[in-house]
Design a protein around this nucleic acid. Sequence first.
DNA 1: CCTACCGATCGGTAGG
DNA 2: CCTACCGATCGGTAGG
Lengths: 201, 201
Amino acid sequence: MSPRRSVAEALGTRSAILERGVAIASCEGLEGLTIGRLAADLGMSKSGVLGHFGSKEALQLAVLDRAGDVFRAEVWERARPAAPGLARLRAICAAWISYLERGVFPGGCFFVAAAHEFDGRPGAVRDSVEAGFETWRARLEKEARRAVDAGELPAATDAGQLVFELLGAAMALNHALQLHRDPLAVTRARQAMESRLGGVA
Amino acid sequence: MSPRRSVAEALGTRSAILERGVAIASCEGLEGLTIGRLAADLGMSKSGVLGHFGSKEALQLAVLDRAGDVFRAEVWERARPAAPGLARLRAICAAWISYLERGVFPGGCFFVAAAHEFDGRPGAVRDSVEAGFETWRARLEKEARRAVDAGELPAATDAGQLVFELLGAAMALNHALQLHRDPLAVTRARQAMESRLGGVA
DNA sequence: CCTACCGATCGGTAGG
DNA sequence: CCTACCGATCGGTAGG
């Protein structure tokens, strides 16, 4: 039990901190994620936790990055095997709904929560959340444009409008699941997305 | 400047606390609304503030009630003169978008923020937020059913589904305005709602 | 990675 | 409505 650990051990510890940090922040928010709570949960000292990041803001950014890895793996990577265009857009929507329905993050979508927590507070955390959303939005819009170009969606389709409405359905689903614990919302979200993507009701 | 004030003065003080509390909580969240901050802003002592409510939770509930009064006045009361059914539903949507666009609460929709902050924390605040949303949802659904019954919307319309999609559009608008400061989203939300209400694009 | 601190602030109480 | 407190906890630092 020497106080100095190897590089591999340090990386393992860092990873464990982030995993626990994502779980806590998902429920309590990124500001409610305190260094003391994290240390207590992991059986470490506060300074032992903080030493891996340097400041609370750096910890928040690292936790946000880790949550982004989870979202990408659960939604984007699951849909990537599908053919570009409408098929992939449908696969993304299915994986997105599943990600919310399964409660991958116990407190609901990590990024929607972080967006509401930080949208009024300038700083690096806010910038990171905004950039993450913009990347996601652009990725969806690209698939939508491909679908239009391939004739899979009407030529008059406004890709930006389509993505706005898909985002709205995902947000309404997240809200209904987290606040009202209403599983019927899954069907509503699916129908909202499908009616936008030209599926039959 | 006697320490004991009249009943009218005490009510005025309470009202001033709530007004300031709504402004702070809109940006910092209901948990970030601290008694010390409130006291400093108002030039009062902490115990002077707390005396009006008894506990922080009671303060949060009172602030939530006050915010509900604002929402009702800004959205529901503005739309109430319209005829029941589709006309009123359209008026509600217009007032709802305007409420978000004008930034009636500086931090965006108070209730969406409160929902995300408290959906994972059981208690009276969570219950109040949930009840408020359910009341609003039911009010919208009632107008939607009236519109269907009057033949203003297709007979096959699922009122619950319609309201789900209107809520999604409002949430996507709130998100785009607060996180991305994207005024184009106003047009997107209007179009999403209108296409649901049978308007021409 | 630890112990042992720091000043600031939290919600809340006692007593007037 | 005030002053004067309480114990707990916050983020962070010094030094090893």
